[in-house]
């Protein structure tokens, strides 16, 4: 059965590494919902969060194939563990003096933020899980959504456990010969 999985992938911060990861996913026809990449506390390591729609067998292949990339240090399937998963969404919605207050109430209810106003529009920032985003977008669509930008999902394990401390990536880093 197909479901969505969130993978955290630690990679060496080398030129082209995102292309290697994205290229692999695309040429093996893996279905990607979102990809988000950014630096970590270690300047040598980049964290890529990938949301993939797959059945279990395909997921296993995604992980194994990614592991073959020389620059990939560690992959963790955060779907199977307690994790905080967040996506940041910016929505530009049609708004004027007549309905601005109404929209602001929705924004407040969803613990979102209004970050820009113009006479005909406003921009709302919201983070959260998929359901929350969908519900907010549904409500705002009544006013006219002009544009949407999302970061794609990022995620961390709950508790003090981290990818690096619990993985072998660093120990293995010394020498493989």
């Amino acid at each position: 059965m197909k479901m969505r999985y969130v993978l955290a992938v630690l990679v060496e911060n080398k030129p082209g590494v995102l292309v290697r990861v994205a290229g692999l996913l695309s040429r093996r026809k893996f279905n990607i919902e979102s990809v988000a990449a950014g630096k970590t506390g270690d300047p040598g390591i980049t964290r890529i969060t990938i949301e993939v729609e797959a059945d279990e067998k395909t997921l296993e292949q995604v992980i194994k194939q990614l592991n073959k990339l020389v620059n990939v240090l560690k992959i963790s399937n955060l779907t199977s563990e307690p994790a905080v998963i967040r996506d940041l969404l910016l929505i530009k919605v049609r708004a004027d003096a007549s309905n601005r207050n109404e929209i602001s109430q929705i924004v407040e209810t969803f613990r979102a933020k209004t970050i820009d106003f113009s006479p005909q529009s406003m921009i709302i920032e919201v983070t959260g899980n998929e359901e929350k985003m969908e519900a907010l977008m549904l409500l705002l669509s009544g006013y006219g959504i002009l544009e949407i930008a999302r970061t794609g999902k990022v995620a961390l394990l709950r508790g003090s456990k981290t990818l690096i401390n619990n993985g072998e990536a660093r120990e293995n880093g010394k020498n493989v010969l």
Binding site: V11, E12, L73, A169, G173, N175, V176, L177
Partner: peptide
């Protein structure tokens, strides 16, 4: 170098 360091390749 006598050795290589490839932490992602084992």
């Amino acid at each position: 170098p006598k050795t290589v360091s490839l932490p992602g390749y084992n």
